[in-house]
């Protein structure tokens, strides 16, 4: 057994042992849920919603005749578990343990590459691609594309709240009254111009095919052209013109009572000198020597201060993310700390 494997075994045994000891002496790693039954009656365009605590019973059903019904499971704090409608949740408990073990699996990379980390990484890649695709579908493709291309079907199945605009309000009304069939209504209601992004989209997906890859350059060119057009304008206005304007500062500042404002004067002078000297440093068409070289060296110093500040802020940010993960392990999973008092009275 090599040294690495020995440390792995020790880590596993110590960690597992600690978990066993914790399990034997106290509770942790449990999730609870609150059941709720929702009864809904819709009349005249308004919904009457009655959320009854707990799972449906014969009485609650009888109290809401003709109502649509579904149940909801809401997250509950362990401290609430004496509430009769709060129950131990297998789904959330398994989820919590998955989350904890995946967190540890990613952490394990710090010790060295290992199958646990690779497994977690593989899941991450799959889930995040899937997640983005689903969000893009429901909130992007449905909302932006299908709502215009096939508005009748979209309103019928996905977005009942979609408001028919004047172009297809009539078609929708006729479809509702049975005057117009599904396909005919759809054909009448569609906005043909929406075919353009659809065609672009299909061309883009041709990238996946081994032969038709070149077709994807059309939508790609559109995308690049649009990006260039948008960015050119905003960068010129916001990051060039406005930045130069903002640097045109008074170099001697007086306060409102006409007394000399030393602090603001120094700040303004520093900003003007800093911007100019740093710009000089970026100017590579001229040899950096003599006065020019001196100014450019001052510019480097300003940039170094800037990078130092950025470094400090970056470190700060990374540490916070790290702290949040340890908080998750100590609080949600192991129940060692309870900053949100979610287990008060347990």
């Amino acid at each position: 057994m090599n040294e690495n494997n020995r440390v792995w075994w020790i880590l596993f045994l110590v960690g597992g042992g600690a978990l066993l000891v914790r399990a034997a002496t106290t509770e942790f790693g449990k999730s609870y849920a609150r059941d709720q039954t929702v009864y809904v009656t819709v009349e005249g365009g308004t919904a009457e919603v009655d959320a009854v605590p707990g799972l449906p019973t014969a009485e609650s059903d009888a109290a809401h005749p003709d109502a649509a019904r579904w149940t909801r499971s809401l997250a509950a704090d362990p401290g609430e578990r004496d509430d009769p409608h709060v129950r131990f949740s297998w789904a959330d408990t398994i989820g919590l343990w998955c989350a904890a073990l995946l967190t540890l699996a990613i952490f394990s990379f710090l010790f060295g590459d290992n199958p646990g980390y690779r497994l977690a990484e593989a899941i991450f890649v799959g889930v995040s691609a899937g997640y983005a695709m689903i969000a893009g579908f429901w909130e992007g493709i449905v909302q932006l594309l299908l709502a215009k291309l096939i508005p009748v079907a979209t309103k019928e199945h996905f977005l009942p709240g979609l408001e028919p605009d004047p172009r297809w309000a009539d078609d929708w009304a006729r479809y509702q009254s049975g005057d117009l069939g599904y396909v005919a209504a759809e054909w009448a209601a569609t906005t043909l111009l929406s075919l353009v992004p659809l065609v672009f989209g299909v061309m883009l997906l041709m990238r996946l095919s081994p032969k038709g890859g070149w077709i994807s350059r059309w939508p790609l060119a559109f995308f690049i052209g649009a990006t260039a057009g948008l960015r050119l304008i905003v960068h010129f206005e916001s990051d060039f013109i406005r930045q130069i304007q903002a640097t045109l500062l008074p170099l001697i500042v007086f306060k409102e009572d006409n007394s000399f404002d030393l602090a603001q004067t120094l700040a303004n002078v520093t900003i003007v000198v800093g911007v100019l000297s740093s710009l000089v440093y970026f100017f590579f068409s001229k040899e950096h020597e003599g006065v020019f070289g001196g100014v450019s060296r001052l510019g480097i110093w300003f940039l170094m201060i800037t990078f130092g500040a950025s470094f400090g802020y970056t470190v700060m940010g990374r540490i916070t993310l790290f702290a949040q993960r340890l908080e998750f392990l100590f609080d949600d999973w192991l129940w060692i700390i309870d900053p949100l008092q979610r287990r008060a009275g347990l």
Binding site: A147, L159, P160, G161, L162, E163
Partner: peptide
């Protein structure tokens, strides 16, 4: 950009 809100409600409603 938004045919409805995130819950599927019509913006005019």
């Amino acid at each position: 950009q938004f045919a409805t809100d995130a819950r599927g409600n019509s913006l005019d409603s």
